[in-house]
């Protein structure tokens, strides 16, 4: 608990900045919705002119920009899941290694605690931060719907607010596993940003190219893709299970590896 509170306090500023930035972004995008809905016909004409692959990548073929949910899914959702994913990955990749980078591992591990305790504190701190992050953004987004697009169904919106959390938890867990090996903060940041952008690129490629469509299974963004969720009317359980499995395996491996690790100081 001691370590958990310390982590939450130490990360509180960065959590606040990321949360505010994305909440404000969502709110401002939804503020544009009324203008979009008014010009829906022109928008449809414009969309029809876009190349087919491009439309597919953003789910324009399955979503309707003139409806609140469609608008949110196309304009705002990918920002939350992509930038939120980067936030989650960085949280993960810096989590364990930073004690070695800042040379505080010698202090922490001289306390009467086990390596398991350290990993548990860090895992909980990561999960709680992501929970708070998504809850605040979710509430702000709900408020923005009420204000700018009151004609929406909560049943359709809720899955879109929960899905980013699922993807972020998986990305953070992968990051945490990497942080066993990455003990320099700078490399932890670039690895965190890099592998999330890599996944996003895979997602785009799989959506555009028929031949490379199978790649979609390798990226968390496909599992929590907005168009898929809206089309299916919710998040498919097996997709949640896959991401939860990845997260559980990563965290499990982190416990095993960190328990046996030589701490570099």
């Amino acid at each position: 608990m001691n370590l958990l509170f310390r982590e939450l306090k130490a990360n509180s500023r960065s959590l606040l900045i990321w949360t505010l930035a994305l909440a404000v972004l969502n709110f401002s995008l939804m503020a544009l919705f009324p203008a979009f809905a008014d010009g829906a016909e022109q928008m449809d004409e414009f969309m029809a002119m876009l190349p087919e692959e491009f439309a597919r990548m953003f789910g324009l073929d399955r979503l309707n920009l003139a409806e609140p949910i469609g608008f949110y899914a196309i304009e705002a959702y990918f920002m939350v899941i992509l930038f939120g994913g980067i936030f989650a990955a960085i949280l993960g990749t810096t989590m364990l290694g930073k004690e070695e980078d800042e040379k505080t591992a010698e202090f922490l591990l001289a306390k009467p605690i086990s390596r398991h305790y350290v990993v548990t504190g860090k895992v909980l701190a990561t999960a709680i931060q992501l929970l708070v992050f998504n809850m605040v953004i979710g509430l702000v987004t709900l408020a923005s719907f009420e204000i700018f697009a009151p004609d929406y169904s909560i049943g359709e919106l809720l899955p879109l607010l929960v899905a980013p959390l699922v993807a972020q938890l998986a990305l953070a867990a992968l990051g945490l596993l990497l942080s066993v090996f990455i003990t320099r903060r700078k490399s932890a940041l670039s690895v965190g940003i890099g592998f999330v952008l890599g996944f996003y690129f895979l997602h785009a490629v799989a959506a555009i190219s028929d031949k490379l469509e199978f790649l979609k299974f390798a990226t968390p963004f496909w599992y929590m893709d907005a168009a898929g969720i809206v089309e299916h009317g919710g998040i498919e359980l097996w997709k949640v299970a896959v991401l939860a499995g990845v997260a559980a395996l990563s965290v499990g491996a982190t416990y095993l590896l960190y328990k046996k690790k030589d701490i570099k100081i």
Partner: peptide, 16 residues
């Protein structure tokens, strides 16, 4: 962990 409850350690390079 049980050992460390009874050990005080001063590292060569001090960083907190």
């Amino acid at each position: 962990p049980a050992i460390k409850a009874e050990v005080g350690y001063i590292p060569g390079e001090v960083d907190y």
